[in-house]
Nucleic acid binder design. Structure first.
Lengths: 201, 201
DNA sequence: CGGCATCCAGAACGATTGTTCAAAAATATA
DNA sequence: TATATTTTTGAACAATCGTTCTGGATGCCG
């Protein structure tokens, strides 16, 4: 049953994504609630009623990012197609996303770097996302190895850790102004090192 | 000629390193000048007289980090010994440093992630440090390739970008609580992928 | 219609921020 | 000793922060 009263005049997830964009761009401490309300296009009171304050809003934005961006690469890794093609697709996608001039890196990586490590809630959330990424990588790697598409002298779990580290490192480099040339170079070297043929990048 | 007057009662570089530790741990926005003066053990006025405020102090801490930590791995990369041994030494050193329980990752990586990208001064400083790291890696890689210690089918510059990305990614992961197992795993996979034999890690 | 839930605008809250001012105490050089 | 410079302590600055309160307008439900 719908509650009696005036319905929300704004799309909650749209507002959440707007907030995520601001946090993504300026970091947690760098964004004020004034920035948020103008970017989200809602009143300050609505922000507190709906999201419960700045910190809760940030946590929701982080979860939303996990359900969107992380889940999308998760889908690619566990999707159909040859396992080696899925691995290549992930890195190619990352290269495209991160090399754009106004790229802001990875929201999760930024959260990992700038948030208080003693904040248990954020640490747990980020750890979960990162672990699910590593697991998906590991299983795709194991599949590729089992069909002789990838050298099998390296433990899939350890290789998965390394590949996510590459992703995070490139996402960090994506914040620098010179990302247009460094990101594709890093992706190219990674794929070459894995023995994955590259069409053109 | 020494200036007439009461000499400084504190060691300037020691205070700078204390400030760097705080910035390193809590980030720029996360540290207040009150945190700084207590950690540095000096008066608030002395901080402004000697370092010229919070922002200048942060810039000096960043430069100091560049002259210490970055320069030390630079020395290893360009130092004596077989080129492949120097590459391995760098990663082993990183693994040791980052896997300790209270590791704070890489100061430069943190600066890259949390500082305003529009801050030209910080961007230029970090870019310089990163580029010098990449260059040192590239030349060590090229040397290793020229003596058949490393596969030579990959461009040294691109491989260097990838390796620094791995370093930054692992430094980011080093901030997470589970760094004790993930960091050595990532380093192991990286060295194995390069075909560098690993003693025991 | 009448109550309820939401919206917006704006003022105000206390707390903390980075920074500066002021005066007394300390120690070097001349 | 006298002068100059720095140190320390403590107070105060204006600005911004996240948050809450107030009031009035709006629209769905029963």
């Amino acid at each position: 049953m719908a509650p009696a009263g005036r319905p929300k005049a704004f799309d909650e997830t749209a507002a959440l994504e707007a907030a995520m964009a601001v946090f993504w761009d300026k970091g947690y401490d760098g964004t004020s609630v004034a920035d948020l309300v103008t970017a989200m296009g809602i009143g300050r009171q609505s922000l507190y009623d709906t999201f419960g304050g700045k910190r809760n809003l940030y946590l929701r934005a982080l979860r939303h990012y996990g359900e969107r961006a992380v889940a999308s690469t998760l889908d690619v890794l566990t999707g159909p197609g040859e396992p080696i093609d899925r691995l290549r697709a992930v890195f190619q996608n990352w290269a495209e996303v991160q090399a754009c001039p106004d790229c802001k890196g990875c929201f999760m990586a930024g959260a990992l770097a700038q948030l208080d490590r003693k904040d248990a809630e954020v640490c747990a959330l980020v750890d979960d996302l990162q672990q699910s990424l590593i697991d998906a990588f590991a299983s795709a790697i194991a599949q590729a190895q089992s069909v002789q598409q990838l050298r099998d002298d390296i433990d899939p779990a350890e290789m998965a850790v390394m590949l996510t580290a590459v992703g995070h490192g490139l996402a960090l480099a994506g914040r620098a102004p010179s990302n247009g040339t460094t990101i594709p170079a890093g992706v190219r070297a990674t794929l070459a090192l894995l023995g994955i043929p590259i069409p053109t990048l």
